[in-house]
Design a protein around this nucleic acid. Structure first.
Length: 825
RNA sequence: GCCCAGAUGGCGGAAUUGGUAGACGCGCUGGUUUCAGGUAUCAGUGGUGGCAACACCGUGGGGGUUCGAGUCCCUUUCUGGGCACCA
């Protein structure tokens, strides 16, 4: 007598059994082809919500599918454990961030295990452990040795609330990405990584990543923002300095009516010496008024302001005098911090010029223009040059070449490329992160900590609510000896941006306990690159760009062999909403994993998350929705153990021959599930919602079978196939049923069913008969009927006859096994 | 403002290269079973008309290509996401 489906009686015990038997452990020495399936490592916030669950369920299904497809799968997990939330929570509660983090990890680890995920826990890592972050330091020193890590004073983004600097990528809409506070500009001496050295490769190699979503690649391209143009310089009247400008539109150079420079431009200061004291004072006041503004106020929200310096530059081609203005709309840190003002052909210059009464000189007209049209608005397209000296009459494209060459010949400029991408600012004035392994010696200067002295241990519990690096207040940490001369020295007190940690963690999984190197070269060459990476879209220009940069550096050093892209296929899963709203603690509408698992079971939760929506879409959690999946699990249970199959023994793995049409239909339903699952996996679409719908259909067919079919070999086959088909999505019920059928080994070690075309084929099709494109009949016919036979069948149908009666058939369209369309008039 | 993605029943969503629109599920309606059943079971369920057979309409709106359009082209509206003085 079969009992009813009771997930509580077996879900937990199977999880323990899998862990004990180590069936998900990845074997470095396996002869099977490797598959590296990785989920973005979670930040240990302490509570797993259904959004995490969606991500891990998808990643787990992908990993399990590949295991059952015969791959040796590496599916690791770890903790992105450094960072501000832990530090802030720790300050609020007056506990050690390490303690808070450890507790959070404990809670989340339990919940992730509870989901029946097939992670290889023997490779678990946490980035806050010295065994991990010592390699951050080691890698930093390697970058430092190559000049790719450097310290310099620069205007940087400062979050006054988090009291630390931020990378450009961490400023969204002029606000801190974490707390939303308006970001300020400050001049500080900070550590940078020279990601700009890799700008071209980071841009160009996106073309080698067909497995990445197009929008992600587009966003990275925009972020890198490569633009090609000409850089050239203007002489300044009465000053032995030149002002360099960058432009993509050198063809408009004869339209320059002013020069616009950023207030921070070094020439601005030099000019104060040659202009009147009143002008110099005005410039200083203007610069000061901008300095107090946030970056957001300074850019998109403000009108274009500026003041005339009183000085003039000399146009290098026309030799005319051009007034120099200090403006708020020129960015100090893009290009050269100075812009040639061409109001006739640039919207921004036009705005500025009309506001400040500067002249407008038109030098490009539409190719079809007579040249006599009145000027009404800036003409920003390419066209034909006028009033441009020798270059008049040329097309914009030709003029760009010719003028660039002329400038090059005059030795005042030439072709140039600019990037929007800036170097990555990694210093943080916070405690809970990796100490930057640098010491400052009074005699020897700035030095890297020798490898033998790594790790530089983060001292326990140094929390400070004030400004500046918390580590600076710990004398035992700061005071050290110089590794070179042995004299007194001070340690760097900034810590690293946690995105440093996550830029290479996928390599640490390969040899997580290695204390000689961050990873073993042989393991890296075997497992890399990551075949499938799954995680949220919010990291598009942060983590995913930094990781690519690091990996290219590693490949350049020869530390990993092969391709210099770390992630072959990338998948962004969508969010989970609750009844259309974002889940949040303040709303009180968070769906927890614990409650859901307790109430409906883990398998039901997993099936629901995979089934509601294609994985990349936003899914909506409703309490009703999951009941359909609970019902399916009940039906699967009964379809296998209903007592209609008295002998629950391991059945045939080979597809039996089908007798009746019903038996054939059953076998076909089995193979349709397999086909869907494999297609979705191999195409990297992962629309398992469609696969699960096929499982519904299979179970419907099994349940609806008549007595004869029920006793057939086809049914025995279907009963034995069902746990295998379901295993990647609902692993617990699959294992329980499999065991009850008498199989000794885990269902998760089985190979997936390979669909067979002959089983999928149907004998009979529904022939659609259309008259003038409208369906008039659906006729059952054997596969492969000829057009003549189809025609005979169609004309025998009374409804079709009624529509063609007395009319001439002008055209006939026949699609074999699909449709016949009769065009009548 | 610019770039990208999308819009299909009451709801979530299916639909190889253009070829049966609405698979599968939720919800709903009615029946069965049960002392009972928020997890049983059977049937129905895009709209309008009709007892029915059927007919007409129908994939955000408008236009086009085609024997045939959710799918391709043009245009437009709305929604979501990204970028936003980058010279």
């Amino acid at each position: 007598m079969a009992d009813s489906y009771d997930f509580r009686s077996f879900e937990r015990s199977w999880q323990e059994r899998w862990e004990r038997d180590g069936i998900y452990r990845a074997d470095d020495a396996s002869a099977r082809p490797k598959y590296y399936a990785m989920d973005m490592l979670p930040y240990p916030s302490g509570d797993l919500h259904i959004g995490h669950a969606k991500n891990y369920t998808l990643g787990d299904a992908v990993a399990r599918m590949h295991r059952m497809m015969g791959y040796e799968v590496l599916h690791p997990i770890g903790w992105d454990a450094f960072g501000l939330p832990a530090e802030n929570a720790a300050i609020d509660r007056n506990v050690d961030p390490a303690v808070w983090t450890t507790e959070s990890i404990l809670k989340m680890r339990r919940q992730i295990r509870l989901m029946g995920t097939s992670y290889d826990w023997s490779r678990e890592i946490a980035t806050c452990e010295p065994e991990y972050y010592r390699w951050n330091q080691w890698l930093f020193i390697r970058l430092y040795e190559r000049g790719l890590a450097y310290k310099r004073e620069a205007p940087v983004n400062w979050c006054p609330r988090d009291r630390t600097v931020l990378a450009n990528e961490q400023v969204e809409d002029g606000r801190c990405w974490r707390c939303g506070t308006l970001v300020e500009r400050r001049n500080l001496s900070q550590w940078f990584l020279k990601i700009t050295d890799y700008a071209d490769r980071l841009l160009d190699d996106l073309a080698t990543l067909p497995g990445w979503p197009e929008r992600t690649k587009t966003m990275q391209r925009n972020w890198i923002g490569r633009s090609e143009g000409v850089a050239f310089s203007f002489a300044v009247e009465g000053l032995d300095e030149r002002i360099e400008v960058f432009t993509t539109r050198v063809d408009t150079v004869y339209g320059v009516t002013f020069l616009a420079i950023a207030p921070e431009h070094q020439v601005a200061e030099a000019l104060t010496a040659i202009v009147s004291p009143e002008r110099a004072a005005a410039m200083a006041a203007f610069a000061a008024s901008l300095k107090s503004k946030s970056e957001l106020e300074r850019t998109s929200l403000m009108e274009k302001e500026g003041i005339f310096t009183g000085a003039y530059a000399i146009h290098p081609l026309s030799h005319e005098r051009v007034p120099i203005w200090v403006t708020n709309y020129v960015l100090a840190d893009y290009g050269s911090g100075a812009v040639m003002g061409v109001p006739a052909h640039d919207e921004r210059d036009y705005d500025f010029a009309t506001r400040h009464g500067l002249p407008v000189a038109q030098v490009v007209v539409a190719p079809s223009a007579a040249g006599t049209e009145a000027f009404t608005e800036p003409y920003v397209d390419d066209g034909k040059l006028i009033a441009s000296g020798d270059f008049s009459g040329m097309s914009s494209a030709r003029a760009r070449e010719a003028i660039g060459e002329r400038m090059h010949a005059m030795d005042i400029g030439g072709k140039s490329i600019n990037y929007r991408l800036r170097d990555w600012l990694i210093s943080r004035q916070r405690y809970w992160g990796t100490p930057i392994p640098i010491v400052y010696c009074e005699r020897c200067g700035e030095l890297a900590v020798p490898d033998s002295q790594l790790p530089v241990i983060l001292p326990p519990r140094a929390l400070a609510a004030g400004e500046g690096s918390p580590l600076a207040s710990i004398a035992e940490f700061v005071e050290t000896t110089c590794p070179k001369c042995g004299g007194p020295a001070r340690r760097e007190t900034d810590t690293m941006d946690t995105f440093f940690d996550s830029s290479w963690y996928y390599l640490r999984y390969l040899s997580p306990h290695d204390d000689q190197a961050p990873w073993e070269a042989a393991s890296a060459s075997h497992w890399m690159n990551v075949d499938q990476y799954i995680g949220g879209a919010e990291h598009t220009v942060l983590h995913l760009l930094y990781a690519r940069f690091f990996y290219k550096f590693f490949v350049d050093r020869g530390w990993v062999t092969g391709r210099d892209e770390p992630f072959e296929h990338l998948f962004h899963q969508g969010l989970v909403l609750r009844d259309g709203d974002k889940m949040s603690k303040s709303r009180g509408n968070v769906v927890g994993v614990d409650e859901t698992a307790e109430r409906h079971g883990v398998d039901a939760m997993r099936l629901f998350l995979l089934y509601v929506t294609p994985p990349e879409d936003t899914s909506n959690w409703t309490d009703d929705g999951i009941s359909g999946r609970v019902r399916l699990l009940n039906r699967i249970w009964r379809a296998c153990l209903s007592g209609r199959h008295p002998e629950l023994v391991a059945g045939p793995r080979a597809t039996p021959a089908a007798g009746t049409a019903a038996e054939k239909g059953l076998l076909r339903a089995v193979h349709l599930v397999a086909k869907s699952a494999l297609d979705e996996t191999r195409s990297h679409r992962f629309h398992y919602n469609a696969t699960i719908a096929r499982i519904d259909e299979l179970v419907n067919a099994m349940t609806a079978a008549d007595d004869a079919t029920r006793r057939s070999e086809a049914m025995t086959y279907a009963v034995n196939a069902l746990p295998v088909l379901v295993a990647p999505f609902a692993p617990h019920i699959a294992e329980e049923l499999w065991a009850r059928m008498g199989h000794a080994a885990s269902v998760h070690l089985e190979l997936y069913i390979e669909p067979d075309e002959s089983v999928l084929a149907v004998d009979e099709i529904t022939l659609v008969v259309q008259v003038n494109g409208k369906v008039r009949a659906r006729i059952s016919a054997p596969t492969g009927v000829t057009e003549d036979v189809a025609m005979a069948l169609a004309t025998a149908d009374s409804n079709v006859r009624a529509h063609i009666e007395g009319k001439e058939i002008r055209k006939r369209v026949y699609v074999t096994d699909k449709l016949l369309n009769l065009v009548v008039a």
